[in-house]
Computed example of a mutant assay.
Amino acid sequence: MKIPRSTSSRLLALLPATALAAGLLAGCSDDTAPDAGSSASASASVDATEQVAENLSEFSYPGEDGKTALELLQEKDPDAQVQGEGENAYVTAIRGREADPATEFWGLYVDDELAQVGAGSLETEDGQTITWKLEEIEQ
């Protein structure tokens, strides 16, 4: 013979199962915010791309035999802004960070040495480090 449970005892029996289900759902949420160890930081109200562009002052990549610094830049950052072409190319923005033409420019370095030619002329080599640095124009 079965003894009917009271309504309150049924609710108490469901409480742990409900709490467990809520906890599991919270743990499976699609939270895309970067963790504290992430190299890119962004606030909830600012797009991560905007945050990177705002703070970017240096951008590096490895050289490759047979490719120019400009070709590699355009591979690593397809949205890089360039005025002119080839030997006459002048980089004006990298990763969304535009140099202020009145006060800044993107300087090109190879292994921490200022390049002696432009990005479209600089043939890179395996093992080199190509770095673009946002620099101030000396007045």
Score class of each variant (00 low, 15 high):
Q83K: 12
G120N: 06
D77P: 00
A48Y: 00
Y109Q: 03
E58W: 05
A99Q: 12
A80M: 01
D65Y: 01
L70Y: 07
D111T: 03
Y61V: 10
K76P: 04
G96H: 01
E113R: 14
R95D: 02
D47H: 13
D79H: 00
A48T: 09
A48I: 15
N55C: 04
G107L: 07
F59T: 01
S121P: 00
S121D: 13
T92A: 02
E54Y: 08
G63E: 14
T49M: 07
D79T: 08
L122S: 04
E54D: 12
D112K: 14
A99K: 02
A115Y: 09
L72Y: 07
A93I: 08
Y61T: 02
A102T: 11
E50A: 15
V52D: 12
Y109I: 09
G86F: 13
D79P: 02
D77T: 05
E75N: 05
G66Q: 02
D47A: 11
L70V: 10
G107P: 01
N88D: 15
D111G: 03
T49Q: 11
E64Q: 13
K67Y: 10
G120F: 04
L114F: 13
V52H: 09
A48P: 14
A80L: 07
S57C: 02
A69W: 10
E75M: 10
A69D: 06
S121M: 12
N55D: 09
G66W: 06
L72T: 05
Q81G: 08
L72F: 00
D77R: 03
N88Y: 10
A93Q: 13
A89K: 09
Y90V: 11
A80G: 00
V110C: 06
S121L: 13
G66H: 06
R95Y: 07
E58T: 14
G84P: 09
A53H: 11
D77E: 03
Q83C: 01
S121H: 06
E98T: 13
G107W: 00
P78M: 02
G86K: 09
A115S: 13
D65N: 14
Y109A: 12
D112L: 11
R97W: 01
T68Q: 08
P78E: 07
E87M: 07
A53R: 12
E98L: 07
D77H: 08
V91H: 03
G84C: 06
K67Q: 09
L114Q: 03
K76T: 05
F105K: 14
E58M: 11
A48C: 00
Q51D: 12
S60A: 14
D65S: 12
N88M: 13
E98A: 15
A53G: 14
T92Y: 05
D77S: 08
A99S: 13
Y109V: 06
V82G: 01
E98K: 15
Y61R: 00
L70I: 08
D77N: 08
E87S: 15
Q81L: 14
G107T: 07
T103I: 11
D47T: 05
V52I: 15
V117Q: 12
D112N: 14
K67C: 02
Q74Y: 02
V91I: 15
A119P: 04
Q74I: 09
